Amino acid sequence: MVITSRIIVKKPVKQVWDFFDNPDNMHLWLKDFKHFEPISGKQGEVGAKAHHVYENKGKKFILEEEITKKVPYKEFSGILRHRSMESIMLNTFEDVGHDRTSLVCTVDTKFKSLPFKLFGSMMKKSFQKRQDADLNRLKECLELES
């Protein structure tokens, strides 16, 4: 299941990248995000692993992130793993002029468990809605800054 979201942020690419790349900002734009826990490697560099901890309705959900590619101000790629799924993410940043940045987020999710495999296609709209909302919160955070 592939989901792509696009936004234009009215800020320079460096500012958008720096905000996106800072784990201390994740709770500001990722719904239900609680905290970030480094596991191995040098934080923020290719090969580094970390837990993303989410909580919704009292239930904790942990994703393991592994950074697979990082080209500052251009691309941030990685793998998000959970016992029921694995998602390959690609985030691209492009200066589109006039202090505006295009951010495109593509996530390709493969489900591991039978129930998710059976119902995965029915969940695509809810995954798309969540991803779009997260990126719009990121945009709002950045555009509200002075």
Rank of each mutant, 00 (worst) to 15 (best):
K10A: 14
P12K: 06
P12N: 08
V13Q: 00
Q15T: 11
Q15L: 14
V16D: 04
W17N: 01
W17F: 15
D18C: 03
D18W: 06
F19V: 11
F19E: 05
F19D: 10
F20A: 09
D21R: 09
N22S: 13
N22V: 08
P23M: 07
N25C: 08
N25F: 12
M26H: 13
H27T: 10
L30F: 10
K31R: 14
K31Y: 13
D32C: 10
D32E: 14
F33W: 06
K34C: 09
F36K: 02
F36Q: 01
E37H: 06
P38L: 02
S40Q: 03
S40D: 13
S40K: 04
K42N: 04
K42P: 02
G44C: 08
G44T: 00
G47V: 01
G47W: 00
G47I: 00
A48Y: 01
A48M: 00
K49C: 00
A50E: 00
H51S: 13
H52M: 15
V53Q: 03
E55G: 02
N56Y: 09
N56M: 12
K57T: 06
K57V: 04
K57F: 09
G58R: 08
K59E: 15
K59V: 11
K60Q: 15
K60G: 06
F61D: 11
L63Q: 08
E65G: 07
E65N: 13
E65L: 10
E65A: 10
E66P: 01
I67Y: 00
I67R: 00
K69F: 04
K69R: 13
K70M: 14
K70Q: 10
V71E: 15
P72K: 05
P72V: 04
P72R: 07
K74M: 04
E75N: 09
F76L: 15
F76T: 01
F76C: 09
S77C: 15
G78D: 03
G78F: 02
G78N: 02
H82Y: 11
R83G: 07
M85C: 07
S87E: 11
I88T: 14
M89L: 11
M89V: 10
L90W: 05
L90N: 14
N91F: 09
N91M: 13
N91G: 03
T92G: 08
T92C: 12
F93N: 01
F93S: 00
F93D: 01
F93A: 02
E94W: 05
V96W: 07
V96P: 07
G97C: 04
H98S: 12
R100L: 07
R100A: 10
S102W: 04
S102N: 12
L103A: 12
V104C: 08
V104A: 10
C105K: 11
T106P: 07
T106V: 08
V107L: 08
V107T: 10
V107H: 02
D108P: 05
D108C: 05
D108Y: 05
K112L: 13
S113P: 03
S113E: 10
L114P: 04
L114T: 15
K117S: 09
F119W: 05
F119M: 14
S121H: 13
S121R: 12
S121P: 03
M122C: 05
K124F: 04
K124W: 06
S126D: 14
Q128N: 09
K129Q: 14
R130C: 03
Q131H: 12
Q131N: 11
Q131Y: 07
D132T: 09
D132R: 08
A133I: 01
R137D: 13
R137E: 15
R137A: 15
K139M: 03
E143I: 11
E143N: 12
